[in-house]
Nucleic acid binder design. Sequence first.
DNA 1: GAAAATATGTAGACCGATCTATTTAGGAGT
DNA 2: ACTCCTAAATAGATCGGTCTACATATTTTC
Lengths: 185, 185
Amino acid sequence: MGQKGTATRARILTATQELVETGGYFSAGLNQVIAASGAPRGSLYFHFPDGKDQLVGESIRRAGQAMGDAFADLAESSASAAEFVEGVLRHLADRLEESGWQKGCPVATVALEMAGASDPLQQACSEVYTSWAAALRARLEGRPDADDLAVTILALIEGALLLAKAHRSREPLDRVTGQLRALLR
Amino acid sequence: MGQKGTATRARILTATQELVETGGYFSAGLNQVIAASGAPRGSLYFHFPDGKDQLVGESIRRAGQAMGDAFADLAESSASAAEFVEGVLRHLADRLEESGWQKGCPVATVALEMAGASDPLQQACSEVYTSWAAALRARLEGRPDADDLAVTILALIEGALLLAKAHRSREPLDRVTGQLRALLR
DNA sequence: GAAAATATGTAGACCGATCTATTTAGGAGT
DNA sequence: ACTCCTAAATAGATCGGTCTACATATTTTC
């Protein structure tokens, strides 16, 4: 693939990612993807011959990877597990607020929309969540209940992010942050 | 409104509720609502003259009320706050599994889809969440951090429900249940 | 209390817009 | 020169929404 091809492919994916994150699968209309990315319709089906599901699937995995990288950075610069999770929550709250309450979890909306409709997309979402749980778990090494705790913290983060977006306020994320220590004691 | 009219209105709402809960706003196509409820298109716009947003809005508030009632029943039959929340989690897990991983939170999908698109629907979702948080809070009376705790538990429930639907497994709900005591200590 | 008049609800054809996807032809990159 | 990629027209399905004709209750009138 030539350089230009790679670039437009990336531009299409980024645009899709952004639209999906804002309003889910159905808000990412192909016309909007085209408009937002500047790529023509033909390129879309050249780079993603299996159509919209492939496009959304790849963009979800890509967003999952990006979020995982952000977690890794935060993990490295945190002294404790509690500090790490607080950093994640703060990061997500900032991102959500700065985007005008648009950018919450890049996977959640599609996960809920497609859980009963598209097996490939359901699996993509499931895998992203599994990878995030593993990343959290790695920061809890040594605890006897690390697995349970990792899933619980992930649920807490996802739930708080959902409530924050629904209320258009970072209050839920802040309240949850305050309760974290009880969980990580 | 005559009896027959009231009945079809209810049938339309129930069908919408079910479709929305399964796959969100866009999965509840008006054609599917018509097919599922048996009501003709004309009746739909007779009973809901403001169109789809009114229909979905009412069905969300209705679902929120129903869930709130279920909470109230569980609250009455529980000896402690921990027992109550565990009961809620078990109830939700059963409901989700029995529906073939379709029926999670009846509000979450629309909340995420419409947070940045439709003000009336965003507000409807926000209000339902507020009412649920208040119901949880009522069961935590006396604790100094009851407000924070109620929101945290609601986030935990919503997050676990999201993960469970995404993975098509009750494992996240079960793991979270195990960690609850640490939070409610 | 029967007939007329009005309100309530049902039924489905139809509209323009928008959706994803396909096709075909030719320009750009290397 | 040859592949890679773009570009736009178009197909066919489905979307939410509107419209008119019809049926069924419910009230009014005499």
